[in-house]
Each structure stands twice: as structure tokens, then as C-alpha cells.
């Protein structure tokens, strides 16, 4: 499988690092080479935050993703920052509830998912990240469907174990969503 070089970016508090952790853990369960690198510091308290995840079949060199082939954006500044950096042929996933502008690049695949609205409609506030993750899983196949459940169980902290079903439902909603483009 080709390397997946993933950037998930948005505001602190949107669960960007968490979504990346689920992917990283699934990669671990599949025995792949991987790295997970978060932004850290004051941006975690509301500024622009991001996480870089690399899933590969060969040892990971730099954990810093320079040209993502999978970009997930949950706010407008992140789209502005990362759109020019996406590798040609890459895939961009946009939370279209929060980002109103369209992607200008024509050499990439774009998926507009109203993830924040979809999560709110289902009473799953704060799970827009998982809705987007569902669409990412369907479109990239970066990790297997069956490993995601186990990864979720590992990554959700014990005191929040009761939220497994909601996370799972959010992923399913994202998998089922077909972008109007």
C-alpha cells in the first residue's frame, strides 16, 4: 500500500489529535510503520492546531508531513495554510459546516462533508472529527475497517468508555455520507 501522509488541522478542542490517534492505533494493530506528531503549546487552547500521521510499509523517515496526500480541515485558516501543500492527486476532506469556501486546486480530490452539522443533527456534539474520519476511511482505505473498532476501544479513555457507540455511529455517518460536490 502507498504511504498515507495525513494532516488533520483545525481549532484546538475539535478532537484533531484524537482522530489522528485512532488512525495511528489502527496502524499499530495492523503492524504498519507509523508516526503521530501533534502541534503542542498554546494553540491547543483554541488556536489553530494540527496533527501529522504517517502510515507506511517502510520505516518512517521524518515524522513531519511536508506534502500530505490526505488533508482533513476543520477551519478556514487550516485550508488556507495546507491547500497549497497537498501532493498532486491527494485527497482533501473539508468540514463544510465550518469552512464555507471551496478548494481552488484542480489536481486533487475534494470531499465536502458538513460534519459539524451532521454531528449536531444526531445529538453527537464534538464528534464532527469522527464523522470526517468515517469519510476518510471510506475514501482512502488507509486502515482496515475491522481494526478501527479495536483502535477506538484503545484510544477512548476508560472513564469515557460509554462514548464508544456514539463515536462508532459518527464514523458510520461519515462513511455513509455522499458529498454533493
Amino acid at each position: 500500500m502507498a504511504d498515507h501522509e495525513i494532516v488533520i488541522a483545525g481549532f484546538g478542542g475539535q478532537g484533531l489529535l484524537f482522530a489522528g490517534k485512532v488512525l495511528a492505533y489502527a496502524g499499530l494493530l495492523e503492524g504498519r510503520e507509523l508516526s503521530w506528531l501533534p502541534s503542542y503549546g498554546p494553540e491547543m487552547r483554541g488556536g489553530t492546531a494540527n496533527c501529522n500521521v504517517i502510515l507506511s510499509d517502510t520505516p518512517v523517515g521524518s515524522p513531519i508531513v511536508q506534502h500530505p496526500n490526505v488533508l482533513v480541515v476543520m477551519n478556514a485558516p487550516s485550508l488556507d495554510k495546507y491547500e497549497p501543500l497537498v501532493a498532486p492527486g491527494g485527497k482533501i476532506f473539508v468540514d463544510s459546516t465550518l469552512v464555507t469556501r471551496k478548494v481552488e486546486r484542480t489536481d486533487v480530490d475534494v470531499f465536502y462533508v458538513p460534519a459539524t452539522q451532521m454531528a449536531a443533527d444526531r445529538g453527537m456534539h464534538d464528534l464532527a472529527n469522527m464523522v470526517l474520519l468515517g469519510t476518510v476511511l471510506r475514501e482512502t482505505g488507509c486502515v482496515g475497517e475491522e481494526t478501527i473498532d479495536e483502535a477506538l476501544r484503545h484510544v477512548i479513555p476508560a472513564r469515557k468508555a460509554h462514548l464508544f457507540d456514539a463515536n462508532k455511529a459518527a464514523i458510520e455517518a461519515g462513511k455513509g455520507y455522499v458529498s454533493a460536490a
Partner: peptide, 10 residues
């Protein structure tokens, strides 16, 4: 360095 401290790997 900060990257090594913050990143996760198997």
C-alpha cells in the same frame, strides 16, 4: 527535542 518528546511511534 520537543518533536521527539511529543511524537508517538510504536
Amino acid at each position: 527535542d520537543g518533536t521527539m518528546g511529543q511524537m508517538m511511534e510504536p
